[in-house]
Amino acid sequence: MKKSVIFGAMTVAGLAAGAAAAGTLEDVKARGKLNCGVTTGLVGFAAPDANGEWEGFDVAVCRAVAAAVLGDGSAVEFVPTTGKTRFTALASGEIDMLARNTTWTFSRDVDLKFTFVGVNYYDGQGFMVPKELGVSSAKDLDGATVCIQTGTTTELNLADFFRANNISYEPVPIETNAEAQQQYLAGACDVYTTDASGLAATRATFEAPGDHALLPEIISKEPLGPLVRHGDDAWGDVVRWTLNALITAEELGVTSANIGEMAANTNNPEVARLLGTEGNLGEMLGLDAGWAKAAIMVGGNYGEVFAKNIGEDTPIGLSRGLNAQWTNGGLIYSPPFR
């Protein structure tokens, strides 16, 4: 593959195979690697650790899909993308799926022709202020300077919120979280706004997190989820049901620890269907019978992934909130495996 790329470039890409694109699923299987687009670095969601290993909540989705398709959670090529490059990277086929805290919106789905396969995190845009300002509500922010981390739909929500409440503000759009945070800490802005999860993650890294407060207003709905290109439904199904498998696994109490035991002797027919001991769901997707089992084995079920990367025991310390299972009053709900 590499060779043909190099020579393709050498001979001005002239003789490169122009074969009609096969399905993404076949491509991934043939390549033996999943190309997954992630952010350039947002702790908790996708960031390389000190050894250069990618880890995080979005990364776990990529790994689960790789495990379901290829049987190996490490067979992923992580492609860092910025807010600007992510959609082209996906549209042009450079990546097979995008798991980069991307908000599911009408125009992205319909106009840009992407398929959002589900929601792995229900987020909303929030505000962080220093406690010494004594601000208790976002409606008190008249005239404030607001640092925005550009990327999702942040700028638009902010403009809408301030316009609706008829108050003024000074936007300072900043590209990366690290720079926005530096501006905020130096007092160059009064408020820092981005997705509430991002705010929590950022605050966790401060020297004195206690000096900063998150305001109660959540000004937008930000359903973040993985997405694929329009027009390849087979591949969309694989990603969608891998995500659903993680969610269902939590609902049914299947964890990475007890999965072997569950697979061997379960009375619950849905668990059996999920783990491939009964029925032929895997075959329908074009995968092995044990696809979901492999996906869950990599990082655990949805709850485990959440707890390990962004949960309350991590420095980021997000509570489940909206992202609890529907059985616990949250919004996380998977269609049945049947």
Binding site: A91, L112, E155, L156, D160, P171, V172, H230, G231
Partner: peptide, 24 residues
């Protein structure tokens, strides 16, 4: 061919649509 395969097109109508963001 690429754009057709993706169902995308090149048009500049977005220039007339409201921008939706503020500029300092």
């Amino acid at each position: 061919k690429n754009l057709a395969a993706l169902g995308l097109n090149i048009n500049f109508e977005f220039l007339g649509a409201p921008a939706g963001y503020d500029i300092n």
